[in-house]
Design a protein around this nucleic acid. Structure first.
Lengths: 248, 248
DNA sequence: ACAAAAGTGTTTAGTGTACACCCATGT
DNA sequence: ACATGGGTGTACACTAAACACTTTTGT
């Protein structure tokens, strides 16, 4: 079967930049190994062609395509994908004119096992600090995604989706340090994230402290009260975290 | 001539959201009246199909398409277009599956005369406060652009591109009020925009004051020292303006 | 005389940063 | 005994918001 149009048309694909955090609070990235040319056997972002049609219902939405490709190529289902940017430079794909809409997501990597499928020979969580060479312009896409992630954690409590349900403040801080790429003063971070005179959504689990398999006193365990947070947001509250500056 | 593909492909278009500011410091939007169906004679954002090809050089970039369509349909050349978002919901265009990449820009409207051309029967600056009904999902695109504009003026001195080269602080404040949609305390705005203990790029024109055709003392005229600003940015300075809260 | 707008000052509360300290724990 | 890290206190500089005041103009 073939499809004929009066004017040339591009192909449209999606790419998914899925950040994960492992149990050591390190940043990871979900990648696949390509089964086919071009860039056969090269690591790349999961992604693929958007299903479209000119007749109603005109195929799937861009977002739906992103969820589908992610599931097909890596077996992973995420709750939320956010549109990042559209990459459409001529020459970015040797097969022809391909325009790609990039999406990004954040998950706990241990909750999402990566299983290669479909066009992906393999799928895996890779340490963000040691990424392999990637296909196409995927390095560019990833660096834009990291930039977005860094600015997002300052005004949305997305970091809290990445930790286990219960966590210590140190763990949360380590996550922020992993994303931002620098050390944060622990005392000040604490006060910022547990404000006394503003709405606070990080609540201590009264009876629980960290079972201390390390030096130092056992840390208080906290949880993120999502309901409280969402109510406050509805009332006009906006989360903000200042962790701009480094301190030794 | 026709083009045949193995799989169905969408059309890709661009839409340009061009904000303007008129000499009364009011916000305007550049619109065209459509010459052809669908939505013939309806007002819409300037935009159109991206020229593509599967053989090198594979056609024009998305951004280039945006500049070209803007020039063809409205006669306007802008210095800088920023990608806003990609709209690709099935059903957004009755002609078939059309994915549109939206760009946005900011200009002084008096420097850019709108002249209808090509697919545009007319092109005109319209008051942002009284927009007509628009074609397709263009209202949605515009509201997303306004949101972006509102957040951008807080951390980039883009407002200064929209005023005449020389301006008073009151004019600048009125522009901010027009974009943000609320009144700002004049004294506090002044101090924010003319900080004493931080780099300041808004310099008084020593010899000039407003020729006062209104009540009140003649205001000092300022200009934006772009060079100084860009040097400071290169050194890590980042512009920020707090005009969040209203005050009567 | 009055209203309107420019420009400036002051007060207050709050914020971010640096840094120091104590304490509980494992080794 | 010591290092490590949790948790807290505090001092300092700076900021934004509110609002009051003076001055200068047009009417």
């Amino acid at each position: 079967m073939s499809f004929t149009y009066e004017f040339p048309r591009p192909s449209v694909t999606i790419d998914a930049v899925v950040f994960g955090v492992n149990q050591e609070l390190e940043l990871e990235l979900l990648l696949i190994k390509r089964r086919d040319d071009p860039f056969k056997d090269c690591w790349a972002l999961p992604g693929g062609f958007v299903n479209v049609a000119d007749t109603v219902p005109q195929g799937e939405s861009l977002e739906a395509a992103a969820y589908r490709e992610l599931r097909e190529e890596t077996g992973i289902k995420v709750d939320y994908l956010e549109q990042l940017y559209t990459f459409g430079e001529p020459g970015r794909d040797p097969r022809g004119r391909i325009i790609s809409v990039a999406y990004f997501a954040l998950v706990r990597s241990k909750d999402h096992t990566a299983i290669g499928g479909d066009d992906a020979k393999e799928a895996a969580w890779m340490s963000f600090k040691a990424l392999p060479k990637l296909a196409f312009d995927h390095h560019k896409i990833i660096s834009m995604a990291l930039e977005r992630l860094r600015s997002k954690i300052r005004y949305q409590p997305i970091g809290l989706n990445l930790l286990p349900e219960k966590f210590t403040i140190s763990q949360l801080r380590k996550l922020y340090e992993a994303i931002l790429g620098y050390k944060i003063n622990h005392g000040n971070f604490r006060r910022q994230i547990l404000p006394k005179n503003r709405p606070n959504f990080i609540k201590p689990v009264r009876t629980l402290r960290e079972k201390s398999n390390r030096t130092g006193p056992p840390a208080q365990i906290y949880f993120f009260d999502k309901l409280l947070y969402e109510n406050a947001v509805a009332k006009g509250f906006d989360f903000k975290l200042n962790c701009r500056k480094i301190s030794q």
